[in-house]
Design a binder for these strands. Structure first.
Lengths: 167, 167
DNA sequence: TCAAATAGTTTGATTTGCAAACATTTTATC
DNA sequence: GATAAAATGTTTGCAAATCAAACTATTTGA
């Protein structure tokens, strides 16, 4: 069990995850670019503002299947945030690239992130800043580690198991 | 613009949000209780392990409509994680309550959170712990504040606006 | 050349969500 | 007490996001 102060900490932590997503949704989807969802913004983010990317590459970055990406890109092309064309060298490959409007949305999104970070770090002294950065990095690593661990377990389970709910 | 160290911080921060959700998904949905999604777990969480709650109450806690909750509960009842019955006093009201299996899943989920927090806090000294708790609380408050701000803006926009994308 | 591999798309299904229409029950008003 | 208004859920129609599997087109390798 956790003591009350640690419980507060846990609650804050969880609420942050909920609220960051909700805030992003509110902040970016509802103001300008009100026709973009969070998922669509993340797709624009994964494509990035520079060279054209392939479908598989982008799907892998997002951790989704190419099938899912295809329909997402259909919509983003319809809404004029993304351009799609076949690669001239390898005609199996499809290239996607942000349009002017897509880049604009991308930059707005990046700006939101920058603002969030700035506002968090600016009021801190140099030492405290370093400490926070260190701690966030630790959290990041811990979570990544956990993710890995559970991914392995999942693989192991899938290898033998065939369902069975009661632990 | 952010300096490189702050950029790392930003990246860590964002990756945490992605990974926490993914890890929860992996950790809890794929091991035991493999038939529960994150959203469903959150519903169990919102119902809580004690007294029976009403639909509206639970929907409000989750920030979804009662219509959405109705179909979610349909599924959870079918999967035997939740019981549903009409209130005897006020027959408009529907009460929902976790079954034994539902409570089990609830406790597993809570345990995951506890473990996460413990692992984060345990290696820290008393001072550092306090500092981290303070910082996480600050982040929480900052995000909540942002959320509020954008919610207000949204209301204002909805009051007049009628669409227009180019900033 | 032709089979295998690769890159995307299409299709059918599920989950999650909203808004609006609806049904039932309670409360308040006349 | 009857009836209109309010409250509580459910149903329906729709859209987004996702996957798996079947499919198409193209390239590569044997």
């Amino acid at each position: 069990m956790l003591n009350p102060s640690d419980q507060d900490f846990a609650k804050s932590l969880l609420r942050i995850f909920d609220n960051v997503l909700l805030t992003e949704e509110k902040a970016l989807s509802k103001g300008y670019f009100s026709d973009l969802s969070i998922a669509e913004l993340h797709t624009l983010e994964a494509i990035g503002p520079y060279e054209a990317r392939t479908m598989s590459e982008t799907a892998a970055r997002l951790g989704i299947t190419t099938g899912t990406l295809t329909v997402a890109i259909d919509r983003l092309v319809r809404k004029a945030y993304v351009e799609r064309y076949r690669d001239l060298k390898d005609r199996r490959v499809v290239r996607i690239r942000l349009t002017r409007q897509g880049k604009l949305a991308y930059r707005m999104h990046a700006k939101f992130h920058t603002l969030l970070v700035k506002r968090l770090l600016d009021p801190l002294g140099e030492q405290e800043k370093e400490r926070l950065i260190r701690l966030v990095k630790d959290i990041d690593e811990f979570i990544a580690e956990q993710y890995h661990k559970y991914s392995e377990e999942e693989k192991a389970l899938k290898a033998k198991d065939s369902g069975g709910k009661e632990p």
